[in-house]
Nucleic acid binder design. Structure first.
Lengths: 150, 150
DNA sequence: CATTTACGTTGACAATTGTAAACCATAGTT
DNA sequence: AACTATGGTTTACAATTGTCAACGTAAATG
C-alpha cells in the first residue's frame, strides 16, 4: 500500500465520530462510556481510535485542565456526503438509479425530506436523459480492442 | 484485526469486478488489458486481484484449456446494494434524507428511474413520519448516564 | 503526603489491502 | 525438440485497521 492514501475514516473510527458529532464534542471518558454501551470495546481500543482520529485531523482537542475535550473538525453531514459520494463514484453509473430506488424504498424519511425530494425530482425530470450509459469499461477502446457489447 | 472479518471486496477488487460484470465474464488477459486502459496497474497486480476475488468467492472459474474464464458469482446490482446498504447502516438515521437529497441532486438519472422514484415517493409520503430520530447514541442510556440533549 | 484513579501516549500484533516481482507449467512457435 | 509467450501460483512488503496491554504523569482522595 502506498503511503498517504489516508483513507479518511475507518468504520470503527466512524462510530466514535458519531458520538462526538452528536454530543458536539466530548471528553474521552464520555466517549468511552457511551461507546461501551454499544460495542464491547476495551477502553484502550477507544483511546486508540480517538488518537488516530486526532492524527487524521478529524478531531481537534481543547485542553481542559489535564484532559482533553474532543471536537469534530468536520460536520457530520459533510463527512457523510464525502463517503457516500466516494462510494457512488465507483459504482456503475447506469445502475445508480436502481440503487437509489432501493434506498428510497427501504429507508424511512421524514415528510419534509420526501417533499424536498419530490420537488427536486420534478425539476430534474425536465432535463433528464432517456438513458444513462454504463461506464464500467473504457468504452471507446473496448470496441476497438476487444469485443461485441458495443 | 480478527480473522474472517472478510470484507466483501476492496475498492481495487471492485474495479476488477466491474469489468467482469460488464463483460459477463472474461479471461485474465481481457481483464488485464481493459484494466490497464484505466489504471496503471501491473499485470501482476491485476492477477493478484483476480486471485483474491476467487478466494473470496466473488468469482468462479471455468477452465478453458489451460486458462480460466472468470465469471461473477454475484450480480453487480446485488453487490451494489450490499455495499451501499452497509454504508448507510452506519450513518446517522436522522441525516440520511439529506444525503440522499444530495445524491439525487448531484447525479444524473434516466427519466424512467426518476419516474419510478416519483411514484415511490408519492406512496411513501402517505405513511412518512414527521421526523426521524438520531440514532448515534444509545439514547435511553444516555439520558440516565450522562447529559442534556434528550 | 501516599495512594489510587484518570487519561494521554507507546508499543504490539494479526489481518487486509495495494502493489508487484519471481516462479512454473503448458501451449504455441521456430 | 528447443524456445518463447501466456497465464496461474507463490512470495513479499509496506500501510491501514481492529484490538489491546503497558506505561507514565498529573489529579483527586484518604
Amino acid at each position: 500500500m502506498k503511503k498517504g492514501d489516508a483513507t479518511l475514516m475507518s468504520p470503527s473510527e466512524w462510530e466514535v465520530m458519531r458520538i462526538i458529532w452528536t454530543k458536539k464534542g466530548a471528553s474521552s471518558t464520555e466517549v468511552i462510556h457511551l461507546m461501551q454501551l454499544k460495542r464491547a470495546w476495551s477502553e484502550s481500543t477507544i483511546k486508540t481510535l480517538l488518537g488516530r482520529l486526532v492524527e487524521k485531523k478529524m478531531l481537534q482537542t481543547i485542553k481542559e485542565g489535564r484532559r482533553f475535550f474532543y471536537q469534530p473538525t468536520v460536520t457530520e453531514s459533510d463527512a457523510m456526503n464525502k463517503v457516500v459520494f466516494e462510494l457512488f463514484d465507483h459504482l456503475c453509473s447506469m445502475k445508480k438509479g436502481t440503487v437509489i430506488l432501493k434506498l428510497l424504498s427501504d429507508l424511512t424519511f421524514s415528510r419534509a425530506d420526501i417533499k424536498k425530494m419530490q420537488i427536486l425530482l420534478n425539476e430534474k425530470m425536465k432535463t433528464a436523459p432517456v438513458s444513462i450509459t454504463c461506464d464500467c469499461l473504457p468504452m471507446n477502446e473496448v470496441c476497438t480492442v476487444h469485443n461485441e457489447d458495443c
